[in-house]
């Protein structure tokens, strides 16, 4: 099975830096989006069991290569880094279009994407890419396996009450969640072997993309302003015995109309 895993490099959780107070720094201090590592782990397990290999695909500035290195160290065979100054400031629509174009240059049985990104930008990208490529789309996977005949993919889609079992022929695009299982630590062998693995870069021109469709000027959405959340007043701390604490808590909640 040849599986392409979409990886997004996002600011390290808790360490997001603001450039000039307005935009978040997406050029450095990045790590692979948490959910992307779960789907990568699943992809690696599947290819280890059924043969084949895993290709990483990311779109982002030079700092995005951090996320690729770790994926290669975990065991992906190669990576494709879509990078071009023209992409800077692209909106979600442009991102989907660019990644779809990149996927058209690759051969695969499955494309994996993680659910929602920790930077709050995700949620629709996987569905949009699948639609643009006319691929069967299976989302919110907690489990993935090939079908018995090997020609299709079967997932457990998380639901409010349990899960649904979905099947589709390959090639297909699967969006997955944390329930897929803990990603492996890159082994030392993997870390030191990563240096000999290929990272191919692709530019706007390589993908034949119309420049007027991407970048800040083409963005269909824009940020009007950024602010820190209203500060919380410091906590009231209760150190009394449980009964007194509970009584004080009830008063506190009642004053806020919560009980």
């Amino acid at each position: 099975m040849h599986i392409v895993v979409l990886v997004k490099a996002v600011p390290i959780v808790g360490n997001e830096r603001l450039l000039d107070g307005q935009r978040v720094d997406r050029g450095s201090g990045l790590e692979a989006n948490g959910n992307d590592e779960y789907v990568l782990e699943t992809a690696l397990k599947l290819t280890e069991t059924h043969g084949g290999d895993v290709t990483l695909l990311t779109m982002g500035p030079a700092g995005a290569a951090e996320a690729l290195r770790k994926g290669l160290a975990m065991g992906a065979a190669r990576a494709v880094h879509v990078i071009d100054d023209a992409f800077g400031g692209s909106c979600a629509r442009a991102t989907a279009e660019v990644l779809a174009a990149a996927l058209r240059t690759l051969t695969f049985d499955l494309v994996f994407a993680g659910a929602d990104t920790s930077d709050g930008q995700g949620g629709t990208l996987a569905a949009s890419i699948a639609t643009r490529l006319d691929l069967p789309y299976l989302s919110y996977a907690g489990h993935v396996e090939p079908t018995a005949d090997g020609a299709g993919v079967r997932i457990h889609r998380l639901s409010a009450v349990g899960h649904d079992v979905l099947e589709a022929p390959m090639p297909a695009l699967v969006m997955g969640t944390q329930v897929l299982g803990e990603p492996r630590y890159p082994s030392l062998r993997g870390i030191m072997g990563a240096r000999s693995k290929e990272i191919v870069t692709r530019s706007l021109a390589d993908l034949g993309i119309d420049p007027s469709r991407v970048g800040a000027d083409a963005a269909t959405t824009r940020v009007l302003g950024v602010s820190p959340p209203p500060p919380r007043a410091g906590a009231t701390v209760l150190r009394t015995d449980p009964d007194a604490a509970v009584a004080a808590t009830i008063d506190f909640l009642a004053a806020r109309g919560l009980v």
């Binding site: 290195r69 630590y185 870390i191």
Partner: peptide
């Protein structure tokens, strides 16, 4: 190097 940092960090976690 990036590789040495990754190696150091992987051993540290272990």
């Amino acid at each position: 190097s990036d590789e040495q940092r990754d190696l150091r960090d992987a051993v540290r976690v272990l």
